[in-house]
Amino acid sequence: MRFSMLPSVFVQMFKKPWTNKFPAKYAPSNTTQFLADVGEGKAEIVPPIQTPKGFRGKIKYDKEKCTGCQLCIKYCPCEAIEFKPKEKKIKIFLARCCFCSQCNDVCPTNCLTMGDEFLLADADPYSKDLIVE
């Protein structure tokens, strides 16, 4: 057959696209301004697709449960975790984190879990959003 793909192409013309148009239907010229508008309620955001079960997002840290055993620091593949010797607690730099959840596996008290949050882009690697403590 000469044009075996032609039927699929015609069908595709009348189909809704698979792509989820996040954050807006048309790309905003200024993303920071657009997000500020969303915060004030002037613009509407197209929500991202729901993350699946077992997704590895931003780490959640339960400070009360942590005993300061430093096992997570020993097994972190990208040295993203720092120990605070005075408080005997940890500080996680998400800018270095590779989201492998190995620290959750080694933690003897289960004080670390993986969250759902994934919109973690930031110009400053030491910003408040990117440090978990």
Binding site: G54, F55, C100, S101
Partner: peptide, 22 residues
Amino acid sequence: WQIREKALDLTEYLTGNRITKG
């Protein structure tokens, strides 16, 4: 790549990530 997208979705469902599966 449409088929691959499904394969990647399945990978994400089974492992938690699309490419670097860990």
